[in-house]
Design a protein around this nucleic acid. Structure first.
Lengths: 212, 212
DNA sequence: GTCTATACACAGATAGAC
DNA sequence: GTCTATCTGTGTATAGAC
């Protein structure tokens, strides 16, 4: 790779990194192109040598995230890979439910900038487009599949798998957006949130016994 | 009231009504002042004779909503009024939980425009402001209070009342935003959603028996 | 590829006639 | 109070020198 290309790659990386920082702290909608270039120490015009628009940049960030996630999965010990179906699975098992929620929560935390951006982007499209529902369904595919397996195994569910999964996903994304701010007030630990959600989703408000 | 004032009131009402329609179908952020005036059959400039800004208009719509809600409560048979504390209450009772969820759901449905607008408005403020968390806490005050009563009565909860209430509220608002579109695809009835949420929140995924 | 300077589009808001 | 016409501010995107 030539020096010129290296420089270019460096600039592109700087822009992405700056964008991530800006999105996480000011939000996607509030961040202007000039905020990103300024934070990256580059000129405004340079932005367009790498990305066609803010939306295009977001797509790039999303691709990076997916790539990283894929790499991580591929190097896992168990190595189920990208298949997505891990065999013996019950979402009604406390530890396994907790693990699923923890994975989702950490994913959101570690990629907060992209999550925030996608969220705001979908929101700005407005309702009516049904964009929000589409994304919710898509992002909770894993939950839905687990629930369908449960149902096929004869376990009674609270409702249609797709709807239940969407409800769980909505709870997660809303909470993460609202309180996953860098040290924002609330001062709740990841553990507290995950434990609380696990208990709520496993046994509900009535508690384990169901005697009340 | 003179004819002139009546005309003015009429225009203001028309603007509000048009805004509600526009917000509900295109979203708050996407709706321009000119969209509202055009839909109301008025000139652009007239808008500012009644509202200082789009945000100001939203505040007015919110006030109207609160006013209507207050009136409705005051004319209720039981008539607990605006006090907010209805005595014998257990969120662990199926019918009472369902009723609470149904009330919240219907509120969101009937005031979809305002809900959407508030949601998008808070979102546009970006995270970091903690605005989303603040609103979530505020809007789930009733849930939180019920949960605190339960806790004081010795009932074990999934976690801190404020957090559990926020989780429930987040689930509700996210779902309502995503699928409470006027006849938008999904084709789920209010009853299905409310029943599903009731079951999920009452007994969780493990079901009533807790035997699994 | 990166910069500076600038054109362009658009939404918010105002001025002044009626 | 309502209208038409217009100004302004702001963010996106491009042009052209280096």
């Amino acid at each position: 790779m030539g020096v010129r290309k290296a420089r270019a790659a460096e600039t592109e990386a700087a822009l992405k990194e700056a964008a991530r920082r800006q999105f996480a702290e000011r939000g996607y909608l509030n961040t202007k192109i000039t905020d990103i270039t300024a934070a990256a120490g580059r000129a405004t015009g340079s932005f367009y040598d790498h990305f066609a628009s803010k939306e295009d940049l977001l797509r790039a960030l999303l691709a990076d995230m997916h790539g990283a996630a894929h790499d991580r999965l591929a190097s896992e010990p168990g190595g189920a890979g990208a298949q997505g179906d891990h065999p013996p699975h019950e979402l009604t098992d406390r530890d396994q439910l907790r693990e699923h929620l923890a994975v989702a929560w950490r994913l959101m935390r570690d990629n907060r900038a992209v999550m925030v951006a996608l969220f705001e982007s979908a929101m700005a499209a407005g309702p009516g487009a049904g964009e929000m529902w589409r994304r919710l369904i898509e992002d909770t595919r894993v939950f839905r599949e687990h629930l369908e397996h449960l149902r096929e195994a004869g376990h009674p569910l609270p409702g249609d798998p797709e709807l239940v999964a969407a409800a769980m996903g909505g709870m997660l994304s809303m909470l993460s957006y609202a309180l996953l701010d860098d040290g924002s007030g609330s001062g709740r630990s990841d553990e507290e949130v995950i434990d609380t959600l696990t208990r709520l989703l496993l046994h509900g408000l009535a508690g384990p016994g169901g005697s009340a």
